[in-house]
């Protein structure tokens, strides 16, 4: 699917969340062969009929794109695209801040 890895450089948490929401929209629309404007981001994933295999596949691909190993049960704890994206944006933001600190120390 999305081949270019995600780069959070220069983005704040809200912007990161929006990028992740875009990724989820494209992923779900391709999965269900639906136009992207029919994908609503604030309804639970299971309302789209995403079963556990699809949810696990989605989180695996999303982790590959973000360059993170993601917990496979995240879509169950954050059951809408907005909730999941907001949560992951915090994680990505914290990772980025940590990396920036480390690089500063290394420099």
């Amino acid at each position: 699917m999305t081949s270019t890895p995600f780069n959070s450089m220069g983005l704040n948490a809200d912007e990161i969340s929006l990028r992740i929401q875009e990724w989820l929209t494209v992923h779900i629309s391709e999965l269900l062969s639906l136009p992207v404007d029919q994908i609503l981001l604030d309804i639970p994933f299971d309302r789209y009929g995403l079963d556990s295999a699809a949810a696990v596949g989605m989180i695996g691909d999303l982790g590959d794109w973000l360059g993170l190993t993601l917990d496979p049960t995240l879509p169950y704890d954050y059951p809408t695209a907005v909730q999941l994206a907001d949560h992951l944006a915090q994680v990505v933001d914290a990772e980025g801040a940590k990396r920036a600190r480390t690089e500063k120390v290394d420099a």
Binding site: S52, A53, A55, V56, G57, G60, P72, T73, Y76
Partner: peptide, 16 residues
Amino acid sequence: YEKYLAMFAVAFHVRA
């Protein structure tokens, strides 16, 4: 195997 381990983790999480 990644899919199997992840799906089983979900199965226990949702108590299937």
